[in-house]
Design a binder for these strands. Structure first.
Lengths: 273, 273
DNA sequence: TTGCTCCTCACGTCACGTGAGGTGGC
DNA sequence: TTGCTCCTCACGTCACGTGAGGTGGC
């Protein structure tokens, strides 16, 4: 028989751990002195302690360890637990490798730039959303070509929503893509979230924008006249990360009278290249 | 301005997280209604939220995120934090790969044997320890050759300790190794932990057993007459794990009159092969 | 009026580490 | 007598999730 200190040393665990395992019924001492409360462990209990440590090392929680050791678990269930553990570990390793790559990227950028890039670019998913929208067309991607078109569309959209009795339910969204059949022309959409069934309402199309699994997003502060550098940074990031983008969205989060105080989220839906 | 729900949706975080970030001063809402306590967030705050999420994703804790974002951290310190994070991630990934290998080994053994091998083998480190010991020699590794020798040594050791006035401070340890110069003969040591300065005491050598970084250990239940299968299992495990062992130790944890109730830990110090 | 969103506590999570305050055996 | 080990609470860890119980605006 060993006292708790010696038994802890034998099993390379802390005394506190042994007390904890006792408290949760995972490993009770062979004997407890009725007067002093002193715990005594039998040599043979070292085996159970070793098994506890081994299973814990595999990443099982203590209640799982207990179930396994107390034979509350059939072979098939145990196999399932091990497979689950394997999957969890693989996911964890993969996620940590990604994290590691990001940490190293930050270190590189800090070495080359002398400080951490503000790193304003975020990868997010975009949920599907019901919007009312109008479509137009612009001659190119520059703000001077797109600006008038999108402003005109949003003006019209506002009026038609009023006559249709629809209430905007969120921030306005501008969407752009390369029309399939009209050369260099850019298709432009002015949209605003609404709660209504899809269909046509007084010349406004109510449609469901499909969810986007991954989009690179960047917050643009200030007038849309000056949006090009932000888009360029975003496009460069997409390029450098081996991705490809199709189309673009702008969500206007804040548009007071003063254009310098606008806040717009630029979103580029991306896929692996 | 956004209410907490909309702002949470924008930033893909939970409302509870925003409240938490407010509580710890990491991200306070731009405005809080004095009457209702309702929080309002400005569009521009999305940038800070994005940064919080990005840094958290790298594995930083919230207080570290706060320090980084609030510029309490110089470039050098930040580099140090990133390097530390990199080292931690590398260690984590490596440990998880080991874990994964062990999980897969269990799965294989469960497939081939129909149940989980009892897996009684533990890898542990052995601390350095001060012992009093006597040395002898046996003709071979069999229990019938070693048994009488080690029993005789322990008897002598007990007597000499008594005359020397030394008190055993732990479980008896038997050690074996292949003598360098005497052919097949095995060197046998009978040792017992004591608290005394190294040197010679009435014919007993007090020495410091060096620490062993890694040893494969197996609990043997029963008489030492039947120890061979346990040693064989241990040796097979060492072999299968690409290790090499040198020498052996037996720590007698429990030795009542009835030999069947003995408990002995067999330890094989191992190194990479 | 009914939902919906918002609010503030406050417990629970997981496996212990770390005191605080006190006792028993050499 | 002094150390040393043992004991039992009980708080702290970390970043929230999850009710409970209640309120304000449409």
């Amino acid at each position: 028989m060993f006292n708790i200190g010696d038994f802890a040393r034998l099993g390379r665990v802390s005394v506190r751990m042994l007390r904890h395992y006792d408290a949760i019924g995972l490993l009770a001492p062979a004997h407890v002195d009725a007067d002093t409360g002193y715990r005594s462990y039998a040599a043979g209990q070292l085996q159970r302690l070793n098994r506890v440590v081994a299973l814990k090392d595999l990443g099982f929680k203590l209640n799982e360890v207990q179930a396994i050791l107390d034979d509350e678990i059939g072979v098939d269930e145990l196999k399932g637990m091990l497979r689950l553990r394997r999957a969890e570990l693989e996911a964890q390793i993969s996620a940590d490798n990604d994290r590691l790559a990001r940490v190293e990227a930050r270190l590189r950028s800090i070495e080359s730039e002398g400080q951490m890039s503000t790193q304003e670019i975020t990868v997010k998913s975009l949920p599907a959303i019901r919007v009312a929208e109008l479509q137009g067309s612009a001659a190119g991607w520059g703000p001077e070509e797109i600006g008038p078109v999108i402003r005109g569309l949003f003006e019209q959209l506002g009026e038609r929503l009023r006559t249709a009795g629809l209430t905007p339910m969120g921030s306005p969204i501008a969407r752009y893509d390369q029309g399939a059949d009209n050369g260099d022309a850019v298709r432009v959409f002015a949209a605003v979230p609404v709660a209504a069934e899809p269909g046509d309402r007084d010349g406004v199309a109510v449609v469901e924008l499909p969810a986007v699994e991954r989009a690179a997003a960047l917050l643009h502060h200030g007038s849309m006249e000056s949006v090009m550098p932000s888009y360029e940074a975003l496009a460069r990031w997409v390029e450098e990360n081996g991705l490809r983008s199709a189309g673009a969205r702008e969500v206007t989060l804040q548009c007071p009278a003063e254009p310098d105080e606008w806040v717009t989220e630029l979103q580029l839906p991306v896929v692996e290249r």
